[in-house]
Design a protein around this nucleic acid. Sequence first.
DNA 1: GCCAACGTTGGC
DNA 2: GCCAACGTTGGC
Length: 152
Amino acid sequence: MKYWLMKSEPTVYSITDLQEDGQTIWDGVRNYQARNFLRQMDIGDRVFFYHSNTTPPGIVGLMTIIENQVADPTQFNQDSPYYDPKSTVNSPRWQTVKVEFMEAFPAILTLDTLKKTFNPEDLLVVKRGNRLSIIPVNLTIADQILQLVNYN
DNA sequence: GCCAACGTTGGC
DNA sequence: GCCAACGTTGGC
């Protein structure tokens, strides 16, 4: 089992939205590096849910992968801002995953705390200028994040 | 609202 | 294939 971190702006889709929906297709990713990480995800992997572009930003919960190699439906939808005319049903360009809600943390684990706890090399999300919306988190760091959640 | 970082586009 | 211009992300 691997750990990941995925960002979402809470005004677009929040941990509360996921809690209500139960599960969702993580659509709209249009960055090749992020997509390549999505392709590496397996069923059962766990994902930290990160709220970006909000005050304060930080990790707010945990979800798990229940389906992988999912063709992002928005790439075929002409009315979607994520429509990709170069993508076809037979050879979709954008794969993603379906995630299921696991838990919302009792309190947000803020970016500020993450910066104080981890080195940028160990946790990419605290690295200045990093804009990747999907990043891998190694097991050691994931354990430490979960411990922080439990102790707070 | 500012702006640094950085990805993408398109002319050449 | 280079790189300037432009667009987007996202913290502050």
